[in-house]
């Protein structure tokens, strides 16, 4: 019985001008994995190839210890996928979608579905064209939950939402995570969401995973360092995004736990956004 909800090995996806290469990637069951990266870094490519929505050149994919070759339907019954596009027809209602599409799932739970709609104030007989963006995003996620999905894969689900709606989505996810059988993969630019809920964070850039770390490893190791004077020799290899400031330098230190506050060096907490930004700065 594997401890991982998703396991990838040697995944390669190739487009003209872009190549995604993931030698090894795994998401532990029962936790939230945040996926961050710039536009074009490969987040959606990773997710879509992982779900066989797009083809790959090679790679082994296991979801809940099953592979698509032998367990295609079983996997699809156990996962929920939501991206930033609303996929349901605007003239339809939640009631209709529940009836029409719910049938494709073994475990579509009508009473759970109605309960979720009620709990999040979505009218089952209202057409989607009358829903706000926030309501649409919530509906997409709820629909993915109604068939008792154990793995929820969200590709920028809060992209077009206002802060209030985003907070509601986050609350929904916190509620979901009370069940330790549920796993979430959450890809987003809105890193403040991940600062809160993510247990693990993966940074992807130029088609490669730069790191996967647990939240506290991330925070212990990655800190913004301010250096007065010259950069200490032993630090040179673990600094990213070095910026010159009056009297010294500032940078992201990726092994902050090895150094301590001294007179000429001070550290402060780095948010996920800081990490993304500093990682991206090109140094000469």
């Amino acid at each position: 019985m594997t401890e991982y909800a998703i396991e990838l090995k040697n995944l390669i996806v190739e487009y003209p001008g872009f190549r995604l290469y993931v030698p090894d990637f795994a998401i532990p069951k029962g936790f939230v994995m945040g996926l961050v990266g710039k536009n074009g870094a490969g987040k959606s490519t990773l997710i879509r190839s992982m779900l066989e929505i797009i083809p790959r050149s090679k790679g082994d994919i296991k979801i809940l210890d099953m592979d698509f070759l032998h367990h295609d339907l079983e996997i699809k019954n156990k996962i929920g996928y939501v991206n930033d596009t609303f996929v349901f027809p605007m003239e339809s209602t939640p009631e209709q979608m529940g009836y029409q599409i719910g049938q494709f799932y073994d475990l579509f739970d009508e009473s759970l579905y109605r309960e979720l709609l009620r709990k999040y104030n979505l009218k089952s007989h209202e057409k989607f064209k009358h829903f706000s963006k926030g309501m649409c995003a919530k509906f997409s996620i709820l629909f993915a939950l109604a068939h008792h999905a154990d793995v929820l894969i969200l590709d920028e689900p809060t992209a077009n939402l206002d802060p209030v709606s985003r907070r509601e989505v986050l609350d929904l996810l916190y509620e979901l995570m009370q069940d330790e059988g549920k796993t979430i993969l959450f890809s987003t630019h809105i890193t403040s969401d991940l600062d809160q809920i993510a247990d693990y964070v993966t940074l992807i850039d130029k088609g490669k995973i730069q790191f996967t770390l647990s939240k506290d490893e991330l925070q212990e190791r990655h800190q913004i360092v301010t250096i007065q004077g010259k950069i200490p020799e032993e630090m040179k290899n673990c600094l990213k995004g070095i910026k010159t400031i009056p009297d010294g330098f500032t940078a992201l230190c990726t092994e902050a736990q090895q150094f301590s506050n001294t007179d000429s060096i001070s550290f402060r907490k780095a948010s996920i956004e800081d990490i993304m930004v500093y990682w991206d700065i090109q140094n000469v």
Binding site: M177, K215, D216
Partner: peptide, 14 residues
């Protein structure tokens, strides 16, 4: 663990 994470709005792993 999970209830407290939700209450404090922090990660479960924390």
């Amino acid at each position: 663990i999970r209830a407290l994470a939700k209450e404090l709005s922090i990660a479960i792993i924390t």
